[in-house]
């Protein structure tokens, strides 16, 4: 139990935390509440939906390709995650454990890639998939999002650097090739970091809005985030169903995060500076 003289500080700290949490949560609570409001009361200031109605959800399930879009989002997120891991693991390994000509330059490129805003890549990426005939296809959705793998490379690299160097020397003396060291020594030890990276990339891709709206605007291939825009149609915004669909789109991510939040925090904790 803390001493009495520390209480004012503790109370102050918790007040700040509570306030921040409230600011963050308010839109979510509002959206959740309003998604249960019938169209007649949607503009009421009360966040509590009374009388409550499932009308919006019924609209979403009947008039909106929700399942198809969730599937698209899942395929996209899984594809991007797989691609990024496939590139980031060998890249991080090469950047830490191998020595090759241009290594520092390659590392510099990764650092620069972290700083480049995704928005600035949209136009070249869009031209690229147009040339390839990939507009409105899964490859068009997935492949250009590989450009975000710099973060995965940096996170994995920091974990790799934290491994004792003699582990790699021992593997070399045991006769392991670089590939075998990666497969039998590095990957098993990197599993916690790797699962955190997987979660992070998956959630980020799930939430991506801008690229899917451009690359795959049709309901057949677009993701749920981009699909939500269908409710903002020419007859005016349909706020009720929009909020209901938004809530449904968030459920998988929140579920994943609840299960794995500790892993994600750990990954960042161990990644440290550098």
């Amino acid at each position: 139990m803390p001493a009495f003289d520390r209480w004012p500080r503790l109370i102050g700290r918790h007040a700040v935390l509570l306030l921040t949490a409230a600011v963050m949560l308010l839109p979510l609570v509002w959206a959740l509440g309003s998604s249960f409001k019938p169209s007649t009361t949607i503009f009421d200031m009360s966040p509590v939906p009374l009388p409550a109605s499932l009308e919006n959800y019924r609209t979403v399930f009947s008039a909106f390709p929700l399942w198809r879009m969730l599937l698209n989002t899942f395929v996209t997120a899984a594809g991007v995650t797989a691609l990024q891991v496939l590139v980031a693991v060998p890249a991080a390994y090469a950047l830490t454990q191998l020595t090759f000509r241009g290594q520092r330059f390659a590392l510099g490129l990764v650092a620069v890639a972290l700083l480049v805003p995704v928005q600035s890549l949209i136009i070249p990426a869009f031209l690229m998939i147009s040339h390839l005939g990939w507009r409105d296809t899964y490859p068009g959705l997935i492949v250009p999002q590989l450009s975000g793998c710099a973060l995965a490379v940096v996170l994995l690299r920091n974990h790799l650097r934290a491994l004792p160097p003699n582990l790699f020397h021992a593997a070399a003396l045991d006769g392991a090739t670089a590939g075998e060291t990666l497969r039998f020594v590095v990957l098993p030890l990197l599993r916690p970091a790797l699962s955190a990276v997987v979660l992070l990339v998956f959630i980020n891709t799930w939430n991506e809005y801008l690229w899917p709206t451009l690359a795959a605007p049709s309901p057949k291939h677009t993701t749920i985030q981009a699909g939500l825009a269908l409710f903002l149609n020419q007859e005016g915004p349909e706020y009720g169903p929009l909020l209901a669909a938004s809530i449904l789109a968030t459920v998988p991510v929140v579920a994943v995060y609840l299960v794995a939040s500790r892993r994600i925090a750990d990954a960042f904790l161990h990644a440290g500076p550098g």
Binding site: L167, H169, A170, L173, G175, A176
Partner: peptide, 26 residues
């Protein structure tokens, strides 16, 4: 040649048997 390291550098995810046998399996 074989080497014993100052920090022993055992593979943390392998059992004693797997550690010792790693070189032979490779």
């Amino acid at each position: 040649v074989a080497m014993v390291f100052q920090d022993f550098a055992l593979y943390p995810h392998m059992t004693v048997e797997q550690n010792v046998g790693f070189g032979l399996r490779l």
